[in-house]
């Protein structure tokens, strides 16, 4: 047993209604698509990006997502997208030793607000707190859990505005260059990097999105 499992509460915040509507739209629009995958992308907002329906390619999209997923579940990403309300730490993603709590805004609470230890930049040296001016967890009303999610679940969650921080396609694409996301590739001494370079990740991310943002079957 890893110590974190003791505290872990897997929150199945994935909303059934959202999933069903994805499915419904899919079934009407995408009958020709391989039955092995389903698109997580939909909605009128994204018409701009998906004006050309011919660009949608479920195989390419799902392939790209497997790369994206390998990054999202790597410690640099998953540690701040925990299933519970306590972030994870280290390459083994153990529960953060001093049990800081998410708090309403995702910035910690009481004696352990993130910025009490996490500075605006990485503190130098091994075992020191990493940093960023906007260091935080997802807020309490939008937890964006990565921990424990399958690729399929995570793909659907990422495309659900009710679960992805109300991001539309444009905002999702832009998110690849978010300062806190970029931190993952400059995480400070002693932390492993995500399995892909940021360039590769961004490419896969956009490929996934632009090809229909299909969710893998599993």
């Amino acid at each position: 047993m890893k110590s974190k499992t003791g505290q872990k509460e897997i929150r199945h915040s994935y909303k059934l209604t959202a999933a069903l509507s994805v499915l419904a739209i899919l079934m009407t629009l995408m009958v020709t698509i391989s039955a092995r995958s389903e698109s997580a992308a939909f909605g009128s907002k994204d018409k701009e990006v998906f004006a050309d329906q011919r660009k949608r390619d479920s195989v390419k999209s799902v392939e790209a997502f497997s790369k994206v997923y390998s990054v999202l579940i790597s410690p640099r990403c998953v540690n701040c997208h925990p299933a519970g309300d306590v972030p994870l730490q280290g390459d083994d993603s153990h529960l953060h030793a001093m049990l800081p709590q998410r708090g309403k805004e995702g910035k910690g609470m009481l004696t352990m607000k993130c910025a009490n230890c996490h500075q605006s930049e990485n503190t130098r040296g091994p075992h020191t707190p990493p940093g960023n001016p906007n260091w935080h967890l997802p807020p309490a009303d939008m937890k964006m859990v990565f921990e424990g999610k399958s690729a399929s679940e995570l793909a659907k969650q990422l495309m659900d505005p009710a679960q992805n921080g109300h991001k539309d396609m444009k905002a999702l694409i832009a998110h690849a260059d978010d300062a806190l996301v970029l931190w993952g590739w400059e995480p400070g001494d002693g932390r492993t990097l995500p399995p892909l370079s940021h360039k590769e990740f961004k490419e896969a991310w956009i490929t996934w999105l632009k090809n229909g943002a299909y969710a893998p079957e599993k």
Binding site: A97, K113, N116, C117, Q119, S120, T123, G125, H127, T128
Partner: peptide, 26 residues
Amino acid sequence: GVASCGACVVHLEGEAVRSCVTKVSR
């Protein structure tokens, strides 16, 4: 020295910061 034990906690603008990793410039 790595913000792990809490022996160095002071209040900075009322918050319990760990002074061992807080640069004086902050």
